[in-house]
């Protein structure tokens, strides 16, 4: 299966990455090669007769809501890492 320019542009858009024309060419060739390589899994039978051994070690971890930390104790430290803030808010360009 080939990955053409249009497909690469679509993937870049979905991935929120701007790519240059040079990158486009290289990426489409690379991704096509890797995709071709991984396609071998299509041929494998994956019907397991005995799947009792699966995932028995992991359980979903749930907890009740409650015991929140004191409001605001991390605010300053975390906002210090934000690229742009105003008071206690992170500032971004307008969306609508």
């Amino acid at each position: 299966m080939g990955i053409d320019d249009k497909e690469i542009e679509k993937l870049a858009k979905l991935s929120r990455i701007k790519i240059t024309d040079a990158e486009k060419k290289k990426l489409s060739k690379d991704i096509e090669n890797i995709f071709e390589y991984v396609s071998e899994i299509q041929e494998i039978s994956s019907n397991l007769q005995d799947d009792n051994f699966l995932n028995s070690r992991f359980v979903n971890v749930m907890r009740e809501d409650g015991e929140p930390h004191k409001s605001g104790i991390y605010t300053e430290k975390i906002l210090k890492e934000a690229p742009d803030i105003e008071d206690n808010y992170i500032r971004v360009k307008k969306i609508l």
Binding site: I3, I8, L11, S15, I17, L27, I31, I34
Partner: peptide
């Protein structure tokens, strides 16, 4: 990183 993000997205 770009390659893997785009491959994963695909």
């Amino acid at each position: 990183v770009k390659r893997r993000i785009m491959l994963g997205t695909h």
